[in-house]
Amino acid sequence: MTDMELLNWARGPALEWATIIFVVGVLVRFLEMSLLGRKPDLSEARASAAGGGWRTVWRRSIPAPGLVKQAPVVIYAGYAFHIGLLIALLFFAPHILLFKDVFGLSWPALPFFVVDAATVIAIVALLVLLVHRLVNPVRRFLSSWVDYLVWAVTFLPLLTGYLAYHRMILPYTEMLAYHMLSVALLLVVFPFTKLMHTFTIFVSRWYNGAVSGRKGVQL
């Protein structure tokens, strides 16, 4: 198989199948969740549950008081990774072209040097988080092989994207093919792992905030 054939397979059938697994998988997970339902709360509310829910959805993005001091690595590297990833994913010109193709929506890209820096930041942050996971007693204790798998499938698209763009190590076409394949892998793993938090985080925050909200607790 030539590099070009590999690339065509990667961005053709491989990504298509991966996307199908991703979409169906995520939908099934949501169905599983919502079928469980939730009993209505019969206690007399002090304030609005929905208000509390929405409040927590955004408020929980800010660390609790004292937490930055207690867990600086997780907080700083966590922010750096998520912001870096979002910039690389959403504001890299070729990605925007792809989104336009698929969803018909587009928005202005950020300059390459910004995307480039964001990618490096995300990569470094992920490496820091990996070391922290291996070294810190709590993180290590909580981690199973799945956590490392998820780390790897998140890391690979960033790394291969960076290398492809800079024409490093492998020829561009071949590296780009690996980039696409790593994205396919990420999409396949997604519905079965904690990567689901990308979506469920809003649900969880809402439920938690709603319980506090109806009691009149602002969290």
């Binding site: 969740m33 919502s34 709590v138 956590d147 689901m196 938090h197 969880s204 439920y207």
Partner: peptide, 16 residues
């Protein structure tokens, strides 16, 4: 219930 499922789906093992 749904919140419990969402919580388990969401945990990223950050340890915070």
């Amino acid at each position: 219930d749904a919140p419990i499922a969402s919580y388990f789906n969401s945990c990223v093992h950050c340890g915070l």
